[in-house]
């Protein structure tokens, strides 16, 4: 059952609908509480639930839409870059109410398609610096600088060699923000710290991510923060093989390698989806970028590679930062 279509029947022309999407959605909430939202989520990777980190986090959010809010959700996987706009357009044409993008790499398609289909809401679940020029758009994402700060506090306090490594796939804006946060916060808790950064070159290559990580570890890093998409598995393998420690990205990595995962800094991506569902229900659909700050992050329990004392110290620092008691200057570094 598609409420947008139903409502359109009562409206004389397409032109009248333009710009009226907000009203329509509000009406729907009030008048047809049982109406089911039809949404499509677009993933660049295949089998997102298997890709621990960012994509699994997104998938958990999708699950929330289905389970908690009764949305009718279609998931498109492994959509190649050239096919993004087309895929999104097809959903819009097929009367989907919401189309969700899950990566910064999708921004171009988002900009391109959103203005063409005013009846559909286009949502970006990732970092973006600007919105498409259209009324039917929303973006939800974390404050990656703050996320980097929390990671930097963990790694900077846990390291015994005073060297930590941050390994990414491709130097996109979100990663640059995150790595900048790591550099600045680790410096505060450990003045001798050296942060090694490297990129594997893509989001899919496990072997390359592994070898790049091995190199950083050979240079003395004993704590590794890694986010290289599918390739993150390679980072984890490098860390495990060298018996160093890994800080999990976005979701809980403990299960993958308990003795190797010091902790994971949870990003709580599902809360973005929760917010989206609430916004749709309440009709708060003015275009905006909703940023989730430090308070939305959480640490999973530490493994026993660090002392209870260090663990406590980390927890204290993170709490201070979340409560605004620890001031970390915002400095943007470039890692290209």
């Amino acid at each position: 059952m598609n409420m947008l279509t139903e409502m359109n029947l009562g409206l004389p022309t397409k032109g009248a609908v333009t710009g009226a999407v907000l009203g329509v959605l509000m009406f729907a909430t009030a008048g047809a509480a049982l109406a089911e939202m039809k949404a499509a989520v677009i993933f660049g990777v295949a089998n997102p639930v298997a890709v621990n980190g960012w994509d699994r986090g997104q998938f958990e959010g999708v699950q929330k839409l289905i389970d908690d809010h009764g949305w009718d959700v279609t998931v498109a996987e492994a959509v190649p870059f050239p096919g993004l706009a087309n895929t999104a357009e097809n959903y819009a044409k097929s009367d989907y109410d919401v189309v969700i993008f899950t990566s910064s790499g999708h921004i171009k398609a988002w900009n391109e398609v959103a203005p063409k289909y005013p009846d559909t809401l286009f949502v970006m679940m990732s970092t973006t610096s600007s919105l498409p020029e259209s009324d039917n758009v929303l973006a939800y994402t974390s404050d990656f600088y703050a996320y980097g700060v929390v990671n930097g506090l963990v790694a900077g306090l846990a390291t015994e060699t005073d060297k930590i490594a941050a390994i990414g796939g491709v130097p996109v804006q979100a990663l640059e923000d995150m790595f900048s946060g790591i550099v600045e916060s680790s410096k505060i808790v450990n003045p001798d710290i050296e942060v090694l950064t490297a990129f594997s070159g893509d989001w899919t290559g496990i072997p390359r991510a592994r070898e790049v990580s091995v190199l950083q570890i050979q240079q003395g890093a004993d704590i590794v923060i890694g986010n290289a998409g599918v390739g993150t598995r390679g980072i984890l393998d490098a860390v495990q093989s060298t018996e160093t420690q890994f800080v999990g990205y976005a979701t809980d990595w403990t299960e993958d390698a308990p003795e190797t995962v010091l902790t994971s800094v949870l990003m709580n991506i599902p809360s973005w989806y929760e917010q989206l569902a609430q916004d749709v229900e309440s009709g708060a659909l003015t275009p905006r970028i909703e940023l989730f700050g430090a308070e939305s992050f959480a640490l999973t329990p530490f493994n026993d590679s660090i002392s209870a004392e260090t663990a406590q110290k980390i927890t204290d620092y993170v709490d201070q930062y979340v409560n605004g008691e620890l001031d970390v200057p915002k400095v943007n570094h470039s890692f290209k």
Binding site: T204, I206, R210, R233, D237
Partner: peptide
């Protein structure tokens, strides 16, 4: 070597 599998 890398001890895991991914598509392609």
């Amino acid at each position: 070597w890398v001890r895991s599998f991914s598509d392609d």
